[in-house]
Design a protein around this nucleic acid. Structure first.
Length: 506
RNA sequence: GAUCGCUUAGCUCAGCUGGUAGAGCAACGCCCUUUUAAGGCGUGGGUCCUGGGUUCGAGCCCCAGAGCGAUCACCA
């Protein structure tokens, strides 16, 4: 098949061929030993010290300033960039100057991956650099990378900013925009910190099925697939809640999983069809205990990532320092609207919602109305992490009824930067009540609610054997990562966000 | 799903009331040769997202479509 190549791509292929003709393998197999990273050298080199007398490092050639028999260039490794100084007669000590005159000056291109050996010194202008004694090509780049330069005022020129380019070709985005790399490193640090926090407390990290014949644990439309050998429909999980609780039935005191979940719904700045949720279930605890744990864990996570509990997000500074504010849902609504809805019936709630200019329709029940009022009137005010507790029972078919408050369940969410970042309950462990809640969901399903839960007989069977009182939580890892990295879109915290398939232009 | 916006060189972007395509960086060549976004001179590079239409003439106007984005709806 004919491929259209740009002028620059053709030139690079010609350079590749010239290198091959000179008997050099542009894609060698051998290990290249690396003694230091660019960052280590820049952070630790002291003028006049004998340290770094001999270093080897490898990376991409990112700029090249050739001046006859001496040149400066920059290489970028996984830690950052460092300047190198290449002198013709030092890398070509004999009569043959081909390596410098031909290969280094002509046939190497920006983006090529090279290995160098030399010693560290400081130039007249005060830049820590590597004086190169030997240079080897490790991999040729035949497609030009966008060249990003930062000028003296710190202004960035020609950074790749087209979102489609960034997300489809994340490998280029990562190479060219250093802050993208640091976002993803923070994401991993965050997950590692959470894992350590929970493992240190003795909770067991587990894996549960992604292909489920009955999907459950959340209200959402699933992706459906088919197993050929069994000739059976399967769903990609929308949550793993019911499986983790089966493990609590089985006798584990604490289990957690970082789970990829899948929901067949709209995409937005805050929604990707596949996303990561961390769910944790701990036996013999309730939601009050879980609130304390959540605060402690996230405060710890912020400290691990940023070295402080204060995190800048957009124009706000968010403080994760304990304790966080706690509101019941009714208190929050009264606080932001001045209206006490705690004793209202459905008709009064509907009137109240209308008076607040909230779009209502006849299918909305009590729980939905309360949720809408909260969502419209309160959520956007909640920038600092805030616990919202005690939700209407209709919205929470897996949560235990409140110990004292009629019509409510023991549930909390944390709202932070105006978005929900977790959802937790005192888990419903009464199999009789759970069956009734599932049946109510089936009714909703019959009335056309596509997100109503399915009745899971096996889960009920597990509860019938007896599940200890349990507290459970699900934390939206992508949402939390957005806050911890000051990202505006979920796509910025996913290496490969979901996109429509690229059309083949050839 | 609805509305609005964007799509021009490898990258970032200009392009007027419709007159046949521009800059910076990158590339190529020469000069300079310890530079700091190195500099100077020169050269090449375009399916102006795609397909139709209007027009003597379309990057620009009209229609249809694609991709991306924003807002809304949906998503507790």
């Amino acid at each position: 098949m004919e491929r259209h190549l740009s002028e620059q791509e053709i030139i690079r292929r010609e350079n590749l061929n010239k290198i091959i003709e000179m008997g050099i393998n542009p894609f060698p197999n051998e290990t290249f030993e690396i003694s230091h990273s660019a960052k280590e050298i820049i952070e630790n080199f002291k003028e006049g010290s004998e340290d770094f007398g001999s270093v080897q490092l490898a990376g991409r050639l990112m700029s090249q300033r050739v001046m006859g028999k001496a040149s400066f260039a920059e290489i970028q490794d996984s830690s950052g960039r460092i300047q190198i100084y290449v002198n013709r007669d030092e890398i070509c000590p004999g009569e043959n100057k081909t390596l410098y005159n031909q290969i280094f000056k002509k046939n190497l291109d920006l983006g090529d991956i090279i290995g160098i050996k030399g010693h560290v010194f400081i130039t007249q202008t005060g830049t820590i650099s590597i004086h190169v004694k030997a240079l080897v090509l490790l991999s040729k780049s035949v497609k030009p990378l966008p060249v990003v330069k930062t000028d003296a005022e710190g202004k960035v020129h020609d950074g790749v900013s087209d979102p489609e380019f960034k997300y489809r070709q994340r490998y280029v985005d990562l190479t060219v925009n250093p802050e993208v790399r640091s976002t993803f490193i923070k994401r991993t640090k965050m997950i590692n910190a959470m894992r350590k926090f929970m493992t240190d407390r003795g909770y067991l990290e587990v894996e549960t099925p992604i292909l489920q014949s009955i999907y459950g644990g959340a209200a959402a439309r699933p992706f459906k697939t088919h197993h050929n050998a069994l000739d059976t429909a399967f769903y990609l999980r929308i949550a793993n809640e019911l499986y983790l609780k089966r493990l609590i039935v089985g006798g584990f005191d604490g289990v957690f999983e970082f789970a990829k979940d899948f929901r067949n719904e709209g995409m937005s700045r805050f929604h990707n069809p596949e996303f990561t949720m961390m769910e944790l279930y701990v036996a013999y605890k309730d939601y009050n205990w879980m609130m304390d744990l959540m605060e402690e864990m996230i405060e710890y996570v912020a400290q691990e990532i940023h070295g402080t509990t204060k995190v800048k997000v957009g124009d706000n500074i968010i403080s994760f320092k304990r304790p966080w504010k706690r509101f019941t849902m009714f208190e929050a609504i009264e606080h932001y609207t001045g209206i006490d809805i705690s004793n209202m019936d459905e008709a009064e709630l509907r009137t109240t919602a209308k008076s607040l200019k909230i779009h209502v329709d006849d299918t909305m029940g009590k729980g939905k109305l309360i949720d809408e009022i909260f969502g419209e009137q309160c959520e956007h005010h909640l920038i600092q992490p805030t616990f919202i507790t005690d939700y209407p029972v209709e919205m929470s078919p897996l949560a235990k009824k409140h110990r004292t408050k009629e019509g409510l369940v023991e549930r909390f969410e944390v709202i932070c930067n105006a978005k929900e970042i977790c959802n937790a309950f005192t888990e419903l462990n009464d199999p009789i009540d759970q069956r009734k809640r599932f049946e109510d969901q089936l009714e909703l399903g019959k009335r056309g609610d596509e997100e109503a839960m399915q009745l899971d007989e096996d889960y009920l069977r597990a509860l019938e054997y007896g599940m200890p009182p349990t507290a459970g939580i699900g934390i939206g890892i992508d949402r939390l990562a957005m806050i911890m990295t000051n990202a505006e879109s979920i796509q910025d915290v996913l290496f490969f966000p979901q996109m429509k398939p690229e059309k083949n232009k050839d």
